Simulated scan of single mutants.
Amino acid sequence: MKMLINVAETVVTDALRGLAAAHPELTVDVENRVIVRRDAPVAGKVGLVSGGGSGHEPLHGGFVGPGMLSAACPGEVFTSPVPDQMVRAAAAVDSGAGVLFIVKNYTGDVLNFDMAAELAEDEGIQIAKVLVNDDVAVTDSLYTAGRRGTGATLYVEKIAGAAAEEGQPLERVEALARQVNENSRSFGVALSACTTPAKGSPTFDLPAGELELGIGIHGEPGRERRAMMTSREIADFAVNAILEDMNPRNPVLLLVNGMGATPLLELYGFNAEVQRALTERGVAVARTLVGNYVTSLDMAGASVTLCQIDEELLRLYDAPVKTPGLRWGV
């Protein structure tokens, strides 16, 4: 194992110290592991809180800032944050307009955010919750009951964040977040396994010359393993898997997401094939995002996310955002 770390036990703490040094516009509580936009709470604005295990950066801490999340709670690598973190984050961003919890569908995240919601409401904070479960690859996995939450998390956080920035009420922000999730589907492919600092070796065995179709962001098994395929073949498989589950009548947002170790040269080439596959199937793409956004440490591979949009969702997606991991219009 070769990693740019000190010791496995301090990986998350060291990363948070580095995040704080690089982004003074954020308030980073290293000890309690809460990342908050420095101007929070913003008067009259709904607070947006998300979080999950570390190792998926820039998700979630890299999406804290104007136009997106108000706060994020990083757990240990691939491990849910604890309720105390979420309650602390909710209290830090609550202006009296309420707080929306955005939760990826993993058992630990769901249980801990549910507990945190009860604790926060006991403190007088109005809480709403939205579950992200966009992955079409499998119904249940090692980490979930139901579908996994993956790339659509970015779209939920971006569009709900824009609505909150405009001062829209909690009920509307929650409804938009649910609409985005319901209109989104994802499918991922792994070319290699990832290595967690604590384990120091690949988290699963993927023989040379094979790939995993439908992989999860923690390395959970997908639908099947095959001999290595071309970019064109992978794009067709991923797009078909998504379109078997959704029939977009409107244009879509497209996310071609790297899993952490795939260079942009490959991702842009893969994007060309995904765009071809969508065009051949009559799906219009309104906006495209290519890069590493919802990662899995050093896993090689990519995921495809489609989100069907209308004029309102597209307007909110295009609205200005200023975070470490996503920035435009400012």
Rank of each mutant, 00 (worst) to 15 (best):
L4D: 15
I5Q: 07
D14V: 10
D14I: 05
A15D: 03
L19D: 01
A21M: 09
H23F: 15
E25A: 05
L26P: 07
E31L: 12
R33L: 01
V36F: 06
R37S: 15
R38F: 10
R38T: 12
A40E: 15
L48V: 06
V49E: 09
G51W: 09
G53C: 10
G53S: 09
H60A: 02
G61C: 14
G67W: 12
L69S: 10
L69D: 00
A72M: 05
C73M: 02
P74Y: 03
E76L: 14
V77D: 01
F78S: 08
F78T: 02
T79S: 14
M86Y: 06
A89F: 03
A90P: 04
A90G: 00
A91P: 09
A92N: 02
A92T: 06
G96T: 03
I102F: 09
N105S: 01
N105V: 05
V110I: 07
V110R: 11
F113A: 03
D114M: 00
A117T: 00
E118C: 07
Q126G: 13
A128E: 15
A128Q: 15
K129V: 12
K129M: 14
S141R: 02
L142W: 05
T144A: 10
A145Q: 10
A145H: 11
T150A: 14
G151N: 14
A152C: 09
G161H: 09
A162K: 03
E166K: 15
Q168D: 13
E171I: 00
V173R: 12
L176M: 11
L176D: 01
A177F: 08
A177K: 04
R178H: 12
V180E: 10
V180R: 03
V180I: 15
S186T: 13
F187P: 05
S192L: 12
S192M: 09
C194L: 15
C194M: 14
P197C: 12
G200P: 01
E210T: 15
G214E: 04
G216K: 01
G219L: 05
R226P: 01
A227P: 00
M228I: 12
A235V: 01
F237V: 15
A238T: 04
A238P: 00
N240W: 07
A241C: 05
E244Q: 10
P248E: 06
V252G: 13
L253P: 06
L254P: 12
A261Y: 08
L264S: 06
L265Y: 10
L265K: 09
A272G: 00
R276L: 13
L278M: 09
R281N: 04
G282W: 14
V283D: 00
N292G: 06
N292R: 08
N292K: 00
T295L: 11
A300Q: 12
A302N: 00
T305V: 11
C307L: 00
I309E: 04
I309Q: 08
E311S: 13
E312W: 10
V321I: 03
K322G: 04
T323H: 00
W328P: 04
G329N: 15
